[in-house]
Amino acid sequence: MKNVLLVLFLSISMIIIYVFIPQQQSIVFQPNDSNANMAYIPTKEETQFKIKYTHSIHLTDVVESYKITPSKKIHQYELMYEDFSIGMPSNAEEGETFEVLNGSYYIKNMKRIFPFFHLRIGQVRANHTVIFKNVEYPLSHSIPPGTSVKVEIRTLNFIDLWKGVNILESL
Score class of each variant (00 low, 15 high):
Thr60Asp: 02
Ile15Tyr: 15
Ala126Trp: 07
Pro145Cys: 00
Leu101Pro: 12
Leu171Asp: 05
Thr54His: 04
Pro42Cys: 00
Lys150Gln: 06
Asn102Asp: 14
His128Glu: 06
Gly87Asp: 08
Arg112Val: 08
Val100Pro: 02
Met1Glu: 07
His141Ile: 12
Ala126His: 11
Leu59Tyr: 15
Leu156Gln: 00
Ile121Phe: 07
Ile143Pro: 01
Phe20Ala: 15
Leu168Asp: 02
Asn127Ile: 07
Ser11Val: 05
Pro115Ile: 11
Lys73Cys: 07
His58Pro: 01
Thr47Tyr: 15
Phe114Trp: 11
Ile15Lys: 14
Phe132Gly: 07
Val149Ala: 04
Ala126Pro: 04
Gln123Asn: 13
Ile41Cys: 10
Pro31Asp: 00
Lys150Asn: 14
Pro144Cys: 01
Ile16Val: 15
Lys163Asn: 00
Tyr18Asn: 08
Ser142Asn: 07
His75Tyr: 06
Glu64Cys: 03
Thr43Trp: 03
Lys108Leu: 05
Ile121Leu: 12
Ile68Tyr: 03
Ala92Phe: 06
Asn91Glu: 12
Ile12Thr: 14
Asp33His: 13
Trp162Ile: 12
Leu156Tyr: 00
Thr47Ser: 14
Trp162Ala: 15
His75Gln: 06
Leu101Ser: 12
Thr60Ser: 12
Arg112His: 07
Asn35Tyr: 13
Ser13Asn: 08
Thr97Tyr: 02
Asn3Lys: 06
Tyr53Ser: 00
Val100Leu: 09
Phe132Leu: 01
Thr69Glu: 11
Lys133Tyr: 02
Ser148Met: 02
Arg120Leu: 00
Val124His: 14
Phe158Arg: 11
Tyr137Phe: 15
Leu6Glu: 15
Ser71His: 05
Gln30Gly: 08
Asn127Arg: 11
Phe117Asn: 10
Val62Gln: 02
Glu82Asp: 10
Leu79Glu: 08
Phe98Asn: 11
Val62Pro: 04
Ser85Glu: 15
Val130Thr: 12
Gly87Met: 14
Ala92Pro: 00
Tyr106Glu: 07
Ser13Trp: 04
Lys108Thr: 06
Met80His: 09
Ser56Lys: 05
Ile17Ser: 13
Met38Ser: 06
Ser148Trp: 01
Phe98Ser: 01
